[in-house]
Amino acid sequence: MIARVLAVAAAEIHIARRNLWVLMATVIMTLFALALTFAGAAPTGALGVDLLTVSVASMTTLSVYLAPLLALMMSFDAIAGESERGGLALLLTYPVSRGEILFGKFLAHIGTIALAMVVGFGAAGIAAALSGGAGTESILALLRLIGTSILLGAVFLALGYALSAAVSSPTAAAGLAAGLWLVFVVLYDLGLLGAVVYDNDGFFTRNVFPWLLVLNPADAFRLWNVSASENVALANGMTGVAGALPAWSAPTSLIVWPLAAFLLARQVFRRVQP
């Protein structure tokens, strides 16, 4: 089983290596991370924290947008693309299970995302540490940011596979992927924000809203990074919500999401008749 998973992963790594989108996304992320780091040099004095802390806070916001985008760009084509080319039927006549195919693709894609995160955030982190100083806590925050970004990527990889298996054409899958990104990263928060404003600090805002927030993997990612480090929270302005939830809630959400999404993707893929 391992051999077959690795065989699929090896082929996918070749594909990801030649995927211009992936290269561009990594370069853009590195540039953004560097730009944010140096733009963040101003408020350090006001908040009394080192430059790396401010940089991690800005990069957390960056990653909420970019990690899901990068993941969906790689995964939307995973099954719909093969299906349209007619390669899926052939692949499925080989003695390899659908779970193995999916997991092989996942390994390659998550490896690519991990590389992009380490390169992008690592470069910005090193730059921040060299020019503005860094402490044990801020270095931990950077490592946490990289780790949670990879988890966030894993969620959207798996969700991307699920929608790629659910539709028959890569174009439809791309459209759905864009919609998915918009809902999780932008619209969900906007909706909650509207509800909070309407509720005017009532029961919903204090008891329901934090849980709804942590249910969304993108927000769980933000909360985890914020609640784990007071300084990051300070720089991010999210102390209020982070304080209202138990410490385990955000990590649980961000660890359960990739597993659940992967199982969903496998279930949808099993129903595909090539």
Partner: peptide, 22 residues
């Protein structure tokens, strides 16, 4: 399959190696 198509980004050797390993 009729009119088989493979992934455009893979080389012939990579594609056939995948199938051999599977």
């Amino acid at each position: 399959p009729e009119a088989v198509a493979f992934h455009r980004a893979l080389t012939g050797r990579e594609q056939l190696t995948l199938f051999a390993r599977l």
